[in-house]
Amino acid sequence: MKFVTCPSLGKRALSEFTYGGRYEQEPAQETVSEKEWADYVFYHNGAPKVQIEWWYHRPTGIWFLFERDTLTDRINKVDFARKGMTHEA
């Protein structure tokens, strides 16, 4: 079983979390063009990389951001989604 160490919660089983997809800056709603919106929603470079992702801790209802390598599955950093990234995993 895979574990991840989170602020406040400590070491938790990864199976307690739900993946919420890549974290990306949302384009400004008022000025975004249809093309930019389609790019934001759909088109990306899906090759292996280190990315920031949403993860939901079901028992506490807290959203976290993980920095994870999609080739090795290593989680490098974790923090509360509201705060941004600071903690080492």
Partner: peptide, 14 residues
């Protein structure tokens, strides 16, 4: 596929 499309800088939803 994403490793191949990356070679051509093609973006996809995959």
């Amino acid at each position: 596929t994403p490793r191949i499309t990356e070679m051509l800088d093609i973006k996809t939803p995959i």
